[in-house]
Amino acid sequence: MLAAAAAFGLAAAGMAAGAESAEKVRITFTEGSAAVVVVTAMEKGFLRAEGLDVEPKPMRAGVEGIESVTQGVMDFGTVHIAPIIATAARKLPLKVVAVNSYGTQFVVVVPPADKASKTMADLKGKRIAVQRGTGAHAVWLRYIEHTGLSERDFKMKYIRNADIASALAGGEVEAGVPWYPFALSIVNKGLGRVLLSQDDIAKPLNDKYTFTLFTRASLVKENPALVQKVVNAWVKAQRWIIQNPGDAARLFHAFTTRRGQTLELKDAEFLMRINYFDQPVFNQAFLDDMMSNARIMKKMGWIKEIPDPKSVVDSSFALKAVQAK
Rank of each mutant, 00 (worst) to 15 (best):
residue 1 M to K: 03
residue 4 A to C: 12
residue 11 A to Y: 05
residue 12 A to I: 12
residue 15 M to V: 06
residue 16 A to L: 15
residue 17 A to N: 15
residue 22 A to D: 15
residue 23 E to A: 15
residue 34 A to P: 11
residue 39 V to S: 08
residue 45 G to E: 00
residue 56 P to K: 01
residue 59 M to F: 04
residue 61 A to Q: 09
residue 66 I to N: 02
residue 76 F to A: 14
residue 80 H to E: 00
residue 85 I to F: 05
residue 86 A to Q: 15
residue 88 A to K: 06
residue 94 L to H: 02
residue 98 A to T: 11
residue 100 N to I: 11
residue 106 F to D: 04
residue 115 K to I: 13
residue 121 A to R: 14
residue 127 R to Y: 07
residue 127 R to W: 08
residue 129 A to H: 04
residue 130 V to G: 05
residue 131 Q to G: 07
residue 132 R to N: 14
residue 141 L to T: 13
residue 149 L to C: 15
residue 153 D to S: 14
residue 156 M to E: 08
residue 159 I to W: 00
residue 162 A to W: 00
residue 162 A to L: 09
residue 164 I to F: 01
residue 169 A to S: 04
residue 171 G to Q: 10
residue 173 V to P: 01
residue 182 F to K: 02
residue 185 S to K: 00
residue 191 L to T: 05
residue 193 R to A: 07
residue 200 D to M: 09
residue 203 K to G: 04
residue 204 P to S: 03
residue 205 L to A: 13
residue 216 R to F: 11
residue 218 S to I: 09
residue 221 K to H: 02
residue 223 N to W: 11
residue 231 V to T: 14
residue 241 I to F: 05
residue 245 P to W: 09
residue 247 D to C: 06
residue 250 R to T: 12
residue 253 H to W: 15
residue 259 R to V: 10
residue 263 L to D: 05
residue 267 D to K: 03
residue 268 A to Y: 03
residue 271 L to V: 13
residue 276 Y to F: 00
residue 278 D to Q: 13
residue 281 V to C: 00
residue 296 I to A: 07
residue 298 K to P: 08
residue 306 I to F: 07
residue 306 I to V: 15
residue 311 S to K: 10
residue 316 S to A: 00
residue 316 S to N: 10
residue 324 A to M: 01
